[in-house]
């Protein structure tokens, strides 16, 4: 089985702040990490490799410095690292990014593509699904568990937030994974030692069938109008009343704000 995992290098958003004047992220001094949903996807791929045997590739689109992240993926035990990089890709939104990723993937062999659900720096959750569409592949998003692969059929559990659904899909396909689904393994000493020596395969614009109109800032339909930090206001109301009256009051508030809907059998007592 050949697995391609789509990964993205992102700023560690637990540490990041927004410049209030310009509305842009202050990236200086903020360390880069592998996007958590992607790292979970990589872990699933490595588990499939442990269980069934597989060739695991990681693919990222990004600047040349993203190769440091790819080396870390190699140091976790994946077999091949591919960097899709070109000045022509700069400024790509999710639409253009998935064009580029799909074009690169078309040049590769695969049975399964795993992408993280979404990246913590953008939270769009669009690149995985769009890439599947470009490749005309079946897709399952929000995968919480990979149950098994048997006779080229993949069984997964999809998380719908309020319920779980077990689904089967024929390979080849694309799934998107959730960071909460596993605890990623650490890099290991032996693979770290060889990872640095391994080459990262580089794919440029000219290596693909892409046209200028497919990628880059100009071909990106998304326009960011403004980025800002929400001001959180705490409008408190303190009432000194007994518990039963308080419960009624809260219920009435929630209903009036349409945060909850009372069922038919609710008795108003």
């Amino acid at each position: 089985m050949k697995i391609i995992v789509l990964v993205k290098q992102v700023p560690d958003t637990t540490e990041i702040q927004v410049d209030k004047k310009t509305g842009t992220l202050i990236r200086d001094g903020v360390k880069s990490i592998i996007n958590p949903d992607d790292l979970a996807g990589l872990e699933e791929a490595l588990c499939l490799k442990d269980k069934y045997g597989a060739h695991v590739s990681v693919l990222t689109m990004g600047p040349p410095q993203a190769s440091s992240m790819l080396k870390e993926c190699l140091a976790r035990g994946c077999d091949e690292a591919i960097l899709l990089t070109d000045m022509k890709f700069a400024g790509s939104d999710t639409w253009a990014t998935s064009n580029a990723l799909a074009a690169a993937i078309k040049k590769l062999d695969y049975d399964l593509i795993i992408a993280g659900r979404q990246a913590i720096d953008g939270d769009t959750a669009q690149v995985g699904p769009q890439t599947a569409e470009r490749l005309n592949l079946p897709q399952i998003t929000y995968v919480q568990e990979i149950v098994e692969v048997e006779n080229d059929v993949l069984t997964v559990v999809k998380n719908w937030e309020d319920y779980l659904e077990t689904l089967q899909v024929e390979l080849p396909c694309l799934i998107t994974t959730l960071a909460t689904m596993n605890k990623p393994r650490y890099m290991n000493c032996a693979d770290i030692w060889t990872a640095i020596e391994k080459d990262v395969k580089v794919i440029k614009f000219v290596d693909t069938d892409l046209k200028d109109s497919d990628v880059g800032l100009k071909s990106s339909p998304t326009n960011v109008k403004r980025t800002f930090t929400k001001d959180v206001s705490n409008a408190n109301e303190i009432l000194n009343i007994d518990a039963q009256s308080a419960a009624k009051r809260i219920l009435a508030d929630l209903v009036s704000k349409q945060l909850i809907v009372l069922g038919d059998n609710h008795e108003n007592n």
């Binding site: 080396k71 140091a75 650490y186 890099m187 290991n188 000493c189 770290i192 030692w193």
Partner: peptide, 14 residues
């Protein structure tokens, strides 16, 4: 070396 740096990163995380 790059290997030693990555080793250190892993040991620190661990």
């Amino acid at each position: 070396s790059p290997q030693q740096q990555l080793m250190k990163k892993m040991f620190t995380e661990f």
